[in-house]
């Protein structure tokens, strides 16, 4: 485990060096890319809690990512248009204050995770994969055909939301906010995983009967984990809206669920830094291959297959094992 910790520290240093490199070389796009990696890593970290540690595979996390994104977009657009969200029974105004938007995004996507989780956790295995997908698809089609917030055209907010004391339109400041949130999320997850609750969650994956025998209802543990997971992914969605100053139903499509899942598996499931490594590798490949050839998706597929076949347990699994052996 110590070896993996070293590797994690190297990851953090590498990640931090990218925006600095961007500043030095005057290539702001590097900062945008690094921010994207950080946000997607937060989304992946949320999924990793249920998929990696809890052992139940959600194919519907795009729903939480998108709901978080829309919470941010809707609040900001109401604030920019000076038009309250509801006027009755009491007035709720929009806001552009991140300190309000981000917790609210977590609360609402967590709430949806509670509802969806309550219905879905009755199933398991492949059935769980598909029922979570079903709920995500419902949200997706709803967003496409709901005209109030742009439907498929999406919702532009033009400016990033505000954070006290920082100019969020400056790429580096926004990166810093996201980065701090990522570290915070990873810290929380490592605390959860090593707590009694986390142990119950992980043993419910292998042996639900034994967990039940000590008087804990496995489904309750799993539901709580699912809600936390949904809330974290919702946070990432809200930040993603800020990164692009725009949100649209495309973040709700099943491709997003698939991509978040790919980050987690690629980096290594049930590894704290797995989602970060996976997201970083995916974005680097996309940028690098996309720069060389129009058929970059072919080569991306090719490389992913090689990784699955020859690197059991994802990138971190491969590296950690190598080090253990030699």
């Amino acid at each position: 485990m110590i070896k993996e910790n070293y590797f994690n520290i190297i990851c953090i240093i590498l990640l931090l060096s990218v925006p600095f490199l961007g500043l030095i070389l005057d290539e702001p796009y590097y900062i945008t890319l690094a921010t994207k990696v950080v946000i997607l890593a937060i989304a992946g970290a949320g999924l990793n809690l249920v998929l990696g540690y809890g052992g139940f595979v959600s194919f519907g996390h795009a729903a939480f990512f998108g709901i978080g994104g829309y919470v941010s977009g809707i609040l900001a657009s109401h604030a920019l248009n000076y038009y309250p969200i509801i006027e009755w029974p009491f007035i709720i105004e929009g806001t552009t204050q991140m300190l309000i938007i981000l917790p609210l995004a977590m609360l609402i996507s967590g709430g949806f995770a509670f509802l969806i989780g309550m219905l879905c956790l009755r199933t398991s295995g492949v059935y769980f994969i598909m029922i979570t997908l079903a709920f995500a698809q419902m949200v997706y089609y709803f967003a496409i055909s709901w005209p109030a917030y742009g439907g498929e055209d999406g919702l532009s907010v033009y400016l990033r939301n505000n954070f006290p004391g920082l100019n969020t339109m400056d790429g580096f400041s926004f990166f810093s906010i996201c980065f701090v949130l990522l570290i915070f999320v990873l810290f929380i997850i490592s605390r959860i995983v090593n707590s009694n609750f986390g142990l119950a969650l992980q043993s419910a994956k292998q042996n639900p009967e034994r967990v039940a025998a000590v008087g804990i209802e496995p489904i309750k543990v799993q539901l709580i984990a699912f809600v936390i997971s949904g809330a974290i992914t919702g946070l990432a969605g809200a930040l993603y809206t800020d990164l692009n100053r725009f949100v649209s139903p495309s973040v709700l499509s099943w491709h997003t669920s698939g991509e978040i899942m790919v980050f987690v598996i690629l980096g290594g499931t049930a590894r704290l830094f797995g989602p970060l490594v996976g997201a970083a590798l995916f974005i680097i490949l996309e940028q690098f291959l996309g720069g060389i050839t129009e058929n970059w998706q072919f080569w991306l597929g090719f490389i992913l297959i090689i990784v699955v076949l020859f690197a059991k347990g994802g990138i971190i699994g491969m590296i950690a094992k190598e080090r253990r052996n030699g």
Partner: peptide
Amino acid sequence: IEDDQRKPDIAVQLADKMIQS
């Protein structure tokens, strides 16, 4: 020339790249 993959979020990021870098 850059490929947006028909995804709005990618298009926004590419526009940033075109303008900034």
